[in-house]
Nucleic acid binder design. Sequence first.
DNA 1: CTGTTAGCGCTTTCAC
DNA 2: GTGAAAGCGCTAACAG
Lengths: 342, 342
Amino acid sequence: MATIKDVAKLAGVSPSTVSRVIAGSNRISLETKNRVQRAMEQLNYVPNAIARSLARSHTHTIGFALSRRADQAFSNPFFSEVMRGMSTVAQARGYNILLSISLNPEDELSKCLQLVRERRVDGLILSTSRVKDPLIAALSEEEAPFVVIGRCMERPVLSVNNDNVKAGYNATVHLLEEGYREIAYLSGASDLVVTIDRMNGYKQALIERGLPLVEERIGVADFSEQDGYEALCQMKERGVSFDAVVASDDLLALGALQFAERYGLRVPEDLGVVGFNDTPLMVYTHPPLTSVRILSYELGVEAMDLLIDALENPDKKRLKKEIVLPSELIVRGSSRRRGKAE
Amino acid sequence: MATIKDVAKLAGVSPSTVSRVIAGSNRISLETKNRVQRAMEQLNYVPNAIARSLARSHTHTIGFALSRRADQAFSNPFFSEVMRGMSTVAQARGYNILLSISLNPEDELSKCLQLVRERRVDGLILSTSRVKDPLIAALSEEEAPFVVIGRCMERPVLSVNNDNVKAGYNATVHLLEEGYREIAYLSGASDLVVTIDRMNGYKQALIERGLPLVEERIGVADFSEQDGYEALCQMKERGVSFDAVVASDDLLALGALQFAERYGLRVPEDLGVVGFNDTPLMVYTHPPLTSVRILSYELGVEAMDLLIDALENPDKKRLKKEIVLPSELIVRGSSRRRGKAE
DNA sequence: CTGTTAGCGCTTTCAC
DNA sequence: GTGAAAGCGCTAACAG
């Protein structure tokens, strides 16, 4: 493999000159520039990224941290879409993505810290945020550049989020307008900021319409169909009544559909269901699932752009920008009963 | 950020000594070893991965190349599962994963070559293989270490594959045993090795059972429901009869279900359907989809292990091992009509 | 505009 | 067992 010295020798210049044409410096004569370029081609020269990184003390790579339980890792394409978005801008701006999949928050914390301390990445994108997230705290303390997809409640950080409160609100209002009155909320892990925000939107809608806020109608589950199903069963067994459910994830909504089947409830007549994420395959459930469409791809795009901007403009770094993206309620059969049997 | 020199100074030794304790050399006195370790802790020292990489001329990072059209990128969790598998062993063996998502094969080729030439990765894992794959050819020529998930038809390469021929065979035999006689095959892009292998299994089953091989019953589509649907419609419109379909991907099978609905065909009575990948959510289709379960996670595990083995034992590198993993047909409602209305 | 000279932070002979 | 010195391949002042 040819090095910069080989090129220099062949072109009859010094390595620094070669370095300059690589960097696209303008204080270089067109003639030598061409000569160097010819030499590079001739030798099939490609600059060694590692050496560059060491000399410039940045790697041009961004770490993406994903922490999921094995069984639910990528059940919905949310993260995959986010990655696609990140990848698009990373490529366009000359960055690489290092993937860090961990099994739990502790594992995630240590891995991310490792990546940063080893200087293997210039910055990190976090895929989820929790209340009092230790990872965010650690990264802040370390003064590592990072952006969170989601929102941080405790301190200002760079973040890209979707309007979860509003989305939860809209989903609930939609159900109310369809005539449902006893709406349950199926929450994911209770320390996830997304889940909390969506729930607040839900509560807000109920309060605004003068409906009672029944705490027993709020079920906590993991992000899996099974958990959603069980949470609803328990609710029912405890004698809590409900005629609709806002699920903070499509998988949970699937659990609700399963629940309806088990108890012989018709959807949407006896039970209205709305989910979150608008997972493509949900069109095929019976009935098709109403769901809040999240701009996952765009979330990835914005997160990567935000991080790289911060990295490349150290002056702006201190400004902790928070970007919020809109979502859209996609109404389908699982929640549409106006004009149908009441 | 502390460097090796700082540690050396604090411990009162030379940098090389520190380097030795990092490497876990045994020719070092326990005493100085402890002293150095204390210094490292005190300074919160973490070796700079980039500097290490440069000095040792390998990066301990593996590139994972994924080339998908935007809309179908991660429609099924196959790749996500593969990543989880790769990630698990990468972590265990001290490697990192660099993600390279590209939009088309050409893009993929240039990106992969770039990663290798820049020495940003020690090796690559390719997510798909095509007939006469230019990427495989280029990488071979470059003598870059890589393993393909799939199979290479032209030359010996390190690969991890599932038994697609057998799986295609089993899926078809199953349909035959359920009494279907005019079985169609829905192929993905015709240059994908997976698709070809599965088709060969399909053909083999028909031939073995003495059934005619009707070329018109083989439809080529992209890996999307819409394409699957259209391919089948065209087949029908051309007057080709069929009472079952083996789809080389679940998404295609979904298209078949859609097709059945459009033409008022009952599944499984009038049309048997079996897909590939056993995508989790397919349990929720009506009827639930029969599908071939692929060990995607294990594919990732094996691929990563194979690559790292090759990297760490340069002697064994020349041995082009091919690993084949078993698959399993999961029979559900979409293909089970024995004992049902004929 | 171009060359010389130091590094970037770590590893690795080669001596002692 | 430990240190000195050279080098991995590139960049970036500093001169000229």
